[in-house]
Amino acid sequence: MGCVSSKESKRPPGYVDPNILAKETTFSVNEVEALYELYKKISYSIFKDGLIHKEEFQLALFRNSNKKNLFADRIFDLFDLKRNGVIDFEGFVRSLSIFHPDTPMAEKIAFAFRLYDLRGTGFIEREELKEMVLAILNESELLLSDDAVEQIVDQTFKQADMNDDGKIDPNEWKVFASKNPALLKNMTLPYLKDITMAFPSFVLNSGASD
């Protein structure tokens, strides 16, 4: 009895019972447990406090704890559900659930909107889109003239900003993303279907079948 759970008693802050998370996300209990193995690996990689700090997230994503990236920052902020500067296990599982292949497209579309609404104004604005385009060009070490960047932004707004008010609202985004599913390819992680094989959990969970 006691021997199995002795290692389990020390749960990090933000730990939530896998049964509860499985009920409220697309993951099964086994998958949540496998995610816990991955979570532990990341959250103990530098600070060893069982929470994922920005540097640990960057290390897992880029193999470099100092690599700055606008989109990685945005993802980190959205995964930080409690808004306290770290990702806890609950935020990790609930947010990754959006990326599960079986999660409804509407949830992915809504998440992508929040991701691209850089300043949280409720709209994707022209300036925000330009900032993101410049960030990706910088990341790819591509040089484009300001005119070319403006053209890309203009063209995209022509397609997405249906009422032509200079900003993309959630409804316009929904219509635009539904028409262009390729835009949402990065909102699905096929890995999440194989997570139990990639990170097998050997913890005996006596409550799993209750």
Partner: peptide
């Protein structure tokens, strides 16, 4: 006229959005 790439399509290729790397050992 050559078609201009959609900005969101370009953005979706960002390394920072490729969470698959989290799962690589």
């Amino acid at each position: 006229r050559p078609s201009v790439m959609n900005a969101f399509e370009l953005i979706s290729t960002s390394q920072g959005l490729n969470l698959g790397t989290l799962f690589e050992k």
